[in-house]
Measured scan of single mutants.
Amino acid sequence: DLSALRVEEVQNVINAMQKILECPICLELIKEPVSTKCDHIFCKFCMLKLLNQKKGPSQCPLCKNDITKRSLQESTRFSQLVEELLKIICAFQLDTGLEYANSYNFAKKENNSPEHLKDEVSIIQSMGYRNRAKRLLQSEPENPSLQETSLSVQLSNLGTVRTLRTKQRIQPQRTSVYIELGSDSSEDTVNKATYCSVGDQELLQITPQGTRDEISLDSAKKAACEFSETDVTNTEHHQPSNNDLNTTEKRAAERHPEKYQGSSVSNLHVEPCGTNTHASSLQHENSSLLLTKDRMNVEKAEF
């Protein structure tokens, strides 16, 4: 173990290094160091905050020279020094078990990766560091076993998940096959086929009936047209017969005018059967003409 005197000496050296690497504005270890034209180094955030307070150039807090945003430059070497100082402080805390008085939040800088452990060898070769390295080497064999167990647990979990997924996939297939086998029997399929065939026959029977009705309507229309044509021909046949009657009536009127007047009046009210309204109107006109002729003949006879 380190003596108290040596611990104090190391602590004083760390404090001196820390004062050199402090920012003059925030009085902390410089984060993202930036250098000016006057070779003074500050935190990048502190300098941008200072420049944004005034429009135009501002003055350096140490030498009062003008500073602009374009004049600022990043210093990589200074950032490396800060990183190495942080590593020294971490090693000091691990070796002594004491917390550094002016320690900052170094938890963000710590890294437990194997590459980081290899890099620590180049920091300080001390008894405390050696003991700590031995402890780490002793704890390393235990870690692979834990990793193997965790991997086995994960693989077993994956296997159970896969088996569950396969079961879920197989179950719908089985149910679907069961439904297909038990849903419709052979008799049901035959009945469905016969039902479809009967429906098709009914459709075939319905369509000819409609065509037959249309044919019957067409035949009825044709018969009505033929009947009207026969009526017209009958009226045409009746007209010459009426003319013959008129000639006979004229002759009778010349011989017996008194008797014919009474008979002509009675004939006005008689309509021949089986004739249309057109034929009756023609008869009325003929009878009126005959009456006028008879009157003329009677007057001539009187004179």
Rank of each mutant, 00 (worst) to 15 (best):
F92W: 04
D39P: 00
V265N: 13
R212E: 05
D218E: 11
V10G: 01
A133Q: 15
E28M: 03
V7Q: 08
K118G: 13
E187R: 13
T230M: 12
R251L: 08
Q201D: 15
S266C: 10
Q147F: 04
K19D: 05
R169D: 07
S150F: 01
E28Y: 01
K44D: 02
H278R: 10
E83S: 05
S35K: 05
L81H: 01
L204N: 06
Q53G: 07
I206V: 01
A279Y: 14
K87C: 09
I41A: 03
C63E: 02
K118R: 06
E271G: 04
Q125E: 12
D188H: 04
Q18W: 13
D213E: 15
F42I: 02
D188M: 11
P57H: 09
E120H: 15
I215M: 05
P24I: 00
I89M: 12
L146R: 13
F106G: 06
N267L: 14
V265F: 11
D66H: 14
H40Q: 00
L146H: 08
A133K: 10
G274I: 03
L94W: 08
N191R: 02
Y260W: 05
I14L: 03
P144S: 13
S150D: 06
K192I: 10
S186I: 02
L86K: 11
N276S: 09
Q93F: 00
S264W: 13
S183Y: 01
Q201T: 12
F106K: 07
G199E: 12
Y195G: 03
C43L: 00
S58K: 07
K31N: 07
L117T: 15
Q173R: 14
E9Y: 01
E229R: 10
P272C: 09
R77Y: 08
E32H: 06
L72D: 06
K293A: 09
E22I: 01
L5K: 11
L27K: 04
Q59L: 03
K167L: 14
S3N: 12
L62M: 12
A252V: 06
K108V: 15
E22A: 01
P257Q: 05
Q125M: 03
I20G: 06
K250W: 05
S216W: 01
K49T: 13
P208M: 07
L217G: 12
L94Y: 01
K118N: 12
I67Y: 02
E202R: 09
K134T: 02
K55S: 10
I30A: 12
L245A: 14
K54L: 04
G262A: 09
T68E: 14
